[in-house]
């Protein structure tokens, strides 16, 4: 049982929870995720860790209420408990000073991107962050990414904030303007697919962080399998980060619809 310490609504459907998990706070690195369960009959849901505080023994999770289980988790309040939190899972992000890094996040994907932005900046990179969402109220964590970004570009589908356009418009503009050594992209699968197609065109190495269907999260079930360079890989133990140019996004998009 893990106690919820803080809750913040980023938007109607996007909630930030700060959760007691001292061992995970200590051992997690950027890119890691946890599996969370709410209720004794609850589903196991993978969530990427957005932040951690070793002193307080807490981790920060950002959840978008999209299905039954995420709605349950979003309805929890400070003082309530998550039934289970296990992790940190997956491989940590490879952090290196490569030069200029574009970090682009869509929707709730900005949450797991935040620790990577921080780590990339601290490693000495020039970090350009592109945040994208449908509209202004869905842009999250802008204030948190600013201190670690040399530049923040905001894109909204409806033009209600920043510039009107897709995340790919923002990324392409940067690539055309200056030399980009690496792109990191986290967001909806369809967004990552198009970021990947774009950066492939410009030959910019790109890392994506995938959020597939999982059950145990430790390699046991294979529900999260995807195809990378023609080979089957498990997102939970081989990932969650992969070379975006090698991921079969169409298959992944199809597999995400397994239970729809």
């Amino acid at each position: 049982m893990n106690k919820i310490i803080e809750k913040e609504h980023f938007s109607e459907k996007v909630v930030k929870l700060v959760v007691e998990a001292p061992m995970i706070a200590r051992s997690r690195r950027p890119g890691h995720f946890v599996i969370v369960r709410a209720g004794e009959h609850g589903e196991r849901i993978p969530l990427t860790i957005a932040d951690a505080d070793i002193e307080r023994g807490t981790i920060t999770l950002v959840i978008q209420a999209i299905g039954n289980s995420t709605q349950k988790i979003c309805a929890l309040n400070p003082g309530d408990y998550l039934t289970d939190v296990v992790g940190p899972l997956g491989k940590a992000t490879h952090i290196e000073n490569v030069g200029t890094v574009v970090c682009c996040g869509g929707g709730v994907g900005v949450a797991p991107l935040l620790p990577i932005i921080k780590a990339m900046k601290q490693a000495g990179n020039k970090v350009i962050t592109v945040l994208a969402a449908r509209s202004k109220d869905l842009i999250i964590l802008e204030d948190q990414v600013r201190p670690y970004s040399d530049e923040v570009i905001i894109m909204t589908d409806d033009g209600s904030y920043g510039r009107q356009g897709l995340v790919t418009n923002g990324v392409e503009e940067v690539i055309q303007r200056e030399k980009v050594d690496q792109v990191v992209t986290i967001g909806p699968a369809i967004m990552m697919k198009f970021v990947s197609l774009l950066t492939k065109k410009y030959n910019v190495p790109t890392v994506c962080s995938l959020n597939t269907i999982m059950v145990d999260g430790t390699g046991m079930c294979g529900a999260c399998r995807i195809t990378v360079e023609g080979k089957t890989r498990f997102v939970c133990i081989d990932g969650p980060e992969f070379d975006a140019h090698k991921v079969d996004f169409d298959e992944m998009l199809m597999r995400l619809r397994s239970y729809n």
Partner: peptide, 26 residues
């Protein structure tokens, strides 16, 4: 034993094909 083995044949990642570990765990 962690990882379920698959046979590596075409179509194995289609929806509706899963490991016994996944099925039984669910």
């Amino acid at each position: 034993a962690g990882l379920p083995r698959f046979m590596g044949i075409p179509g194995e990642n289609l929806n509706g094909v899963m490991s016994s570990n996944e099925y039984l765990t669910r």
